[in-house]
Design a protein around this nucleic acid. Structure first.
Lengths: 185, 185
DNA sequence: TGCATCATGTAATCAGTTACATGATTTT
DNA sequence: AAAATCATGTAACTGATTACATGATGCA
């Protein structure tokens, strides 16, 4: 399990409340890791009682108070342990691939709309990533010594960009195949 | 949930036992959907009691008897329903991406070995896919009318190939970044 | 007045993983 | 003699999803 670790990394990058973490998981981090607020609150509670994170009550005006979490020494140690422990190259779950193979036993043409929707979603994500890259990773080049955090965030973002581009190309391939099957029969 | 549906598709492509399904999930299908035998046996039982699949006891010589499952009318209907119901473009979980960002708060160089291991795993998978493509999708071209099942299986396989190629290129990018950070500091 | 945002949670259920369990045959 | 393959399952636990619940402020 690694939701704990994803939270640790996010809190090391910037301390924040459960609510803020949930929003980060919806946006940036959420593209390679997702979690709902219910899940996050539960895990934060466990992490706190395990001494991985510290809490600080932050009173706010015109807003409910929030609990700001930050990483404690034990949390850093836990992250260190996890980083030095091998993980399995993840086996993905591509629902869409199952649907495509399933379409052989149904109407392939009926899938076109669905694939189009996915294509649109990936187009949007790609645009979102590229905007983020332009915002955060252009301008003042490599400081010396280089900022490791910045470099590493950038390489992860480049991964997201490569993934979306690959998906778009593949979805075009899928659409061409579906159209071909719909045409000649 | 879609394990049921993945099983339906697999059984439509070819009826088989729980054990055989588990093996298919390890090999071909397992690259875009994974499931253990325990999970599969449980789901098969539920699907059977829901009337989605039929069972046939197959006695074998020199081997334990097996239960061969095949898709019933209700199962086909369930698949049809699922195919015509939109699914969310999946949010993936990239543990490795979390580790890479986490390395900013630890030693980036320590991650090199791990990333190398992943690179090797993806190289192996790519080779496996390409071998499968050569075996199953070369030779006698487009029959007329084309075999929809074959075409759709091929386009899914092309997706797997594109994914592995993208990952290899990205992991090279990651390795270059890690080496750079390890060198100048 | 109604909806969105900020902020936190509980409870129930469902899905997935790990461990345990059995037993024959075939291959090294 | 030991390990791998074929074949099926149960039990316990952990993780994830969905539904329910509350309550203030600010905007249209």
């Amino acid at each position: 399990m690694a939701l704990e670790h994803a939270i640790l990394v996010s809190l090391l990058e910037k301390p924040g409340s459960g609510y803020e973490l949930a929003r980060r998981f919806e946006r940036s981090i959420g593209y390679f890791w997702n979690a709902t607020h219910q899940q996050i609150y539960r895990v934060l509670k466990r992490m706190e009682s395990d001494g991985w994170i510290d809490v600080r009550e932050v009173p706010q005006q015109a807003r409910p108070d929030k609990k700001e979490y930050s990483v404690a020494a034990a949390g850093r140690a836990a992250l260190h342990g996890w980083l030095n422990e091998p993980i399995e190259p993840e086996s993905v779950r591509h629902d869409l691939a199952v649907k495509i193979r399933g379409a052989a036993f149904d109407d392939p043409a009926a899938l076109i709309g669905e694939v189009d929707r996915h294509r649109q979603a990936h187009t949007d994500r790609l645009a979102h990533y590229l905007a983020g890259e332009r915002r955060d990773f252009t301008g003042p080049e490599a400081s010396d010594p280089p900022d490791a955090g910045r470099e590493l965030q950038h390489v992860v973002l480049r991964g997201g960009i490569a993934y979306e581009r690959m998906m778009l190309a593949w979805l075009d391939d899928v659409l061409a195949t579906l159209h071909r099957l719909a045409a000649d029969r």
